[in-house]
Amino acid sequence: MSRQDHIREFAAKALTEGRVDYFIGWKQGHNASEVVPAFVKEAAAVDQLVWNELCHHNLVTFLKRNMPDPAGAKIGVCVKGCDSRTLVALLQEELIDRDRLYVVGVPCDGIIDRRRLEKEFADEIVAVSCSDGRVSVATRKGNEKEFAKEEVLLDACTRCRYPNAVYADDVAGPPVPEPDRDGAKPDWSDVAGYESLSDDEKQATLEKVYSACVRCFACIHVCPVCVCWDKCVNRSRQPELVEQKVGTKQKLLFQMIHMFHVAGRCPSCGACDRACPVEIPLYLLHRKMNKEIYDMFGFEPGTKLDEKPVFQLFDVNDRFGD
């Protein structure tokens, strides 16, 4: 039985038994190169659910405050490894009610970076399919190209330490092999290039990269652990931490606010990065932050249900400062 079949079966069962009011999974978008979140309310409709290498959406987003409709609905949700870490981060802070959730973990061996594929064509991509480690892409004008899967994976997937859900009620099929986490530290080589720049270069780079921001709030609203999204200080006039003007200053501060507010909860799932309509590589600075947090505490956000995020705790024996 494929993972996709498992998901459908779990969804149908939960819906039939009344365990959930609706079940969130993935379905095909407007063409075969896109997958979108699916909200299934009836067991008869579970056949629209899919699982493939395009299912990048972190569905935990749809569990956070004000998202469930109706409020208080019992929800079934599919999570990949990285998604489950954001779910755990929310559960650690009791920001969602565990009793209203039914979590299906989906072991994952990598999601395709669709944006990377788009860069390969001037034309529109209409179909992406994957088998045996090869990704074939077809465009509207009929161009076709094949890629090795590892070449077009999301950055987050190439360094994934949690391919299986860290928290789930049911698991869709056998787990994928876990990397050796105890023996090997996380691989932070992706941020090394940025770290090696001088302060001036870093500032110039940030200004250049973030000046594209249009302040649409997609990164904040899609972020599963950014929970005050409709009361966000980025929009507040009282207090006014950041001006509503749209200049480089405000854009940078806006992004820093997002970053620092999810410190200790953000597992670098990359949802913000993929949601950004102007393709700002938000993911990377979040990775850098997580690297520092790992160095400080040896802490990986959202991995253990009985932990609290590090910034909500303290230890009198912390060795920080002079």
Partner: peptide, 13 residues
């Protein structure tokens, strides 16, 4: 790659 986009802006600042 995401990382490459973070390479130095031309001429530093």
């Amino acid at each position: 790659a995401g990382g490459a986009a973070f390479e130095a802006a031309p001429g530093g600042n």
